[in-house]
Design a protein around this nucleic acid. Sequence first.
RNA 1: GCCGAUGUGGCGAAAUGGCAGACGCAACGGACUUAAAAUCCGUUGGGCUUAAACGGCCCGUGCCGGUUCGAGUCCGGCCAUCGGCACCA
Length: 911
Amino acid sequence: MSERRKPYPFDRLEPKWQAIWDETRAFHAPNPGEEKFDPAQPKYYVLDMFPYPSGAGLHVGHPEGYTATDIIARYKRLKGFNVLHPMGWDAFGLPAEQYAIKTGQHPVVTTRENVAKFKTQLKRIGFSYDWEREINTTDPGYYKWTQWIFLQIYNSWFNPETKKAEPIATLLEAMKNWLGYEQWTPEQQRKIVDDRRLAYVEDAPVWWCPDLGTVLANEEVVDGKSEVGGFPVVRRPMRQWMLRITAYAERLLKGLDGLDWAESIKTLQRNWIGRSEGARLEFPWEGNVATGLLELAITVFTTRPDTVYGATYVVLAPEHPWLEAIVTREQRDRVREYQARVASKSELERTDLAKDKSGVFTGGYAINPITNEPVPVWIADYVLMSYGTGAIMGVPAHDERDWEFARRYGLPIKHVVAQLIPDGIEMRPSPAGITRVVQSKTGEKLGTWNDDRPFCGEGIAFNSPIIEGLLTPEAKQEVIKWLEMRGGLNGPTVKYKLRDWLFSRQRYWGEPFPIVWCDGKHEALTESELPLEPPALEDFKPSGTGEPPLAKAKDWIRYSENASRETNTMPQWAGSCWYYLRFCDPHNDERFVDEEAERWWMGPSIEKVVETRLVDPDPEWKPGGVDLYIGGVEHAVLHLLYARFWHKVLFDLGHVSKPEPFQRLVNQGMILGEDGRKMSKRWGNVIDPLDVIEIYGADAFRCYEMFMGPLEQMKPWSMKGVEGVSRFLARVWRLIMEENQAGEWVRSAAVQDEELTKAQQKITHATVKKVTADIESLSFNTAISQMMIFVNAFTTAEKIPVSAMRTFLVLLNPFAPHISSELWERLNLGGDITAQSWPEYDERFLVEDEIEIVVQVNGKLRDRITVALDATESELEAAALANQKVQNAIAGKQVRKVVVVPKKLVNIVTG
RNA sequence: GCCGAUGUGGCGAAAUGGCAGACGCAACGGACUUAAAAUCCGUUGGGCUUAAACGGCCCGUGCCGGUUCGAGUCCGGCCAUCGGCACCA
C-alpha cells in the first residue's frame, strides 16, 4: 500500500502520550500505607484474565475484553476511585515447553521474549495498567507462593462438622475421640490423616494423553480428546496428586447465588457440579443367607427410591471392587472377559458404543430390600464406577437405560408408577390389556400405565404396598423414612458429578511440588525451603511412559540420604488460581499478600450490592472481591471453578477476608473473521491488531472493538467498520483543529469561548447522561453512537464553544485516551485530562418547552403533534381529536375510548 | 436427549410495553476538484397509488396463538442457528 495521508497525526501523538503516562506513573494505584494513599477514596478493582504469552503475539480477541476493562478503569478514575487495574503473565504451560522440545531453547528464554512482545503490544494500545504490579507465574518470587498455597491445602482437611477446611492439627485432636483410637498404630493414624488431606495421592484410573505425555484433569478432556491439541486420551491407573474439590461442591454451588455473573455461566458451573438428591439403598448379597458369615450388601444410589418395588435386578460397574466376592465360579470367565474388553476400550469408543447396552450376569443374587425377593446381579459398562456408588438398581419400567438393558437380556419388568392423567382430560378407552387405570390414595387423581414402554416421569405409585396410591414426591419421602429405619448406609443422600481435581502433570514447565518422598510416604517441605525451583534440564521431553521429565534430574531429585523429591509438576491452572490476590501486593516477600492490602482491594466498593431474589441465599456471602472481571467464556468450568475453590480454602484458613474472589463476571463474545468464520490460519482470516493500529491508530482500534456490538456477543470483524470509527475520530480532530497554509495542525478559529445555544446545551447534557449510563451498563457501542451524534451536531456549527468540547473530551477519554489527551492539551484546558473529574449532567437542560406527541388511532401511528410541555390530558385529547389525519381515520366511526400517556402519546380507539 | 443463549434492512446493530431500524458500514445521487482520493451535503425496509413532485395507503422484528387501547419487547406453543453437558442412575 502506498503511503496514505493520516486523517490526523495519531502516529505521533499516540506514542507521545504513552511515554508521558509511563513517566508520570499516571495509573499507579497506591496501596494502604503508601504515600499517596487516601482511605477516603473508594477502591475499584477491575481485572482482565491475564494472557498466556504465546509466540504469536496478541490477536484481536485479547484487546476486546482489555479495552472494556480499560474504559471502566479510566472512567472510574475520573469518577474519583482508587482503581486497581493490573496485568501479568500466565506463563507456565504446554506451548512454551513444546517449543522448547522442538528448538532446544529453554522455556525461560522463550517466555521472556514472548512477555516482552506482549507487553510492547499492550502498551501500544494505550491500556492504563499499573505496570508496577506486573506479575509472572514463572517467576520464583511468584511461584514460591503458589507452592506455599499448595502446602496450606496439603496441610488441611475438610471438617464435615464445620464444613470448612481446617489445619491437620484439629484432625489429630478430633481423632482422639474416635472409636478405637487407642489401638491404632502410628502407621494407621498416618493413613487416616493422609486420606483426609485436601491434597492427597491416589492410585486410580486417570486420563492419560499419550501424545502430550501427561495426565489431564476431567475438565481438560472434551469428547474423549485433550482440550489442548485434540489428542486422544485413555483411562489408565496412575499414582497422582488430587485436590479434594468435591468437599466444596455444596459451597461452590451455593456461593454462585450471591454473585453478579451471567446466568448462563452460573448454569454451566451448576451443571458441572451436577448436584442430585436421592437415596442410598442396600441390597444384601444373597450369599449372606447361605454362608451366614459375610455381611455384604450392595449399596446403590437412586434419585427415585419410590421405584424400588420395580427393581428387578442390580448392576455393578465393571470395575466394582466387590465383584471378586460376588461372581460365581460358573460365570467367572465370562465376567473376566467382559471386564477386560471394557478396560481395553478408550473412553471415546466406550461412549461411542453406548447405543448398544451390554453386560454380563455375575451368577450372584442380591435381595431387594423392600420385596425381599432375590434379584440377579449383573455388570455392565453403562454403570460408571466414578458416579454414585458404582452400582444401580435396575428399574426397567421407569428408566430408559434399564428398559433397554432388560429388554436385551430378558430381565423381568415390573411397573410400579402410573402416569398422571392431566386434569380435565377425559379418559378415552384404549385397546384392552394395554393401558390400565390407577387411582391415587385420595381418589382424586387418576393414572395410567402401559407395559409397552417405560415411564420415567412422576406419577402415582402402585403395586407398592407401603406407598400404594401416593404421588411420587410423597412416595419418595415415605421410602426414605422406611430406609432410615433400616439403618446401615440406607437413607437420603446427595451426589455430585464433580470429581476431585487431578492436580499433577508429567511436564517440565510447571511448578514443582514442594513434597519429598521417604519410605513411600510423602512429606511437605517447610516454608523456608521455598521457592523450590525446577532443575536445569537439557532434555524436556516427556518419556512417554508417564515418568515425568524431572525424573531425569538425578541430583535434583535426591533430597537427603533416604528422601527424594516429587517429580510431577502442577498444572497450568495453579498460577492463575490466585494471581488476582498477588496483584494486591505483588512484591511482598513475607506473605503471599499483605493482610491489609488484601482487605482493602478485595473489600467492598461502594458499588451497589447485588440483590438476590433467591429464597435460600448463601449465608456465607459477603460483599467484596474483584469488582469487575472480564474474560472469555472458555474458562467457565476450569479457571473460574478452580480459583473459587482455592479462594474458599484460603478463606477457611483465615488467609483472605472474603469467601468469593470475583463479585462481577462478564464474558466477552468471540470476534470472528470478516467471513463470519472463527479466525484461524486455516481460513486466512486472522486480523493482527498491530496491523490495524498501524493504519488507523490505537484509538480507532479501541473504539472499533467497542463499537462492533454488545461486548458479550459473538461478532464478525470488519475493516470497513474500523474505517468508519476512524472517520469519527478524524471529525473530532477537525472539530477543534485545522490545517494552516504550511500544512500544520493548529487550533481551529471556530473554537471560541461561546455560550452554548439551547440545542447545544441539550445535546451536551444528553450525551453526558447517555455515555455515563452506557459505561455503567457496559453498553460501549451505544455510548460511542451517542458521541457520534454529538459530533455530528457540532460539525455544522459555525462556532464551536470551548466548554462543550471540554465536557466532550472527558467523555471520550476512556474510549480514545490519546486523541482526547492531545486535544485537551492543544485547547490549553489546564492540567492533564486524566486528572479531571467526570462531568455531571442536569435534567433541566434536557427538557423542552414544547414536545412532540404521537397520535395513534387503534394503535397505529397517524400523526405527530407539537404541544406545550405542561399540556393537560384533556388538552392533549382535544388536540389529537382536532387533528386532520385523525379525523380522516376516524370518519364515520365512533370513538370508544381515548388513551392519553402524558408527554408521550394519545391513542384513539374506535368501535 | 437435557440445559442455556440468539433470531430485527444488503451488512454490524439500536429501541424503560408507546414513532421499528438510532449510530455506523455498503450503495446511489450531488458539491468541491483538471481528475482522483479525502472531505461535505442528500437518499436508502418492502410494496401500492400518482404523468411527476408533494401527498396518501398497505405490509414488515423466525413461525402460530394469547394478554393489552397498544407487543420487536410480556405469556403459551413451535421452528432454526450457536454454545455447554451427555449412559450422572
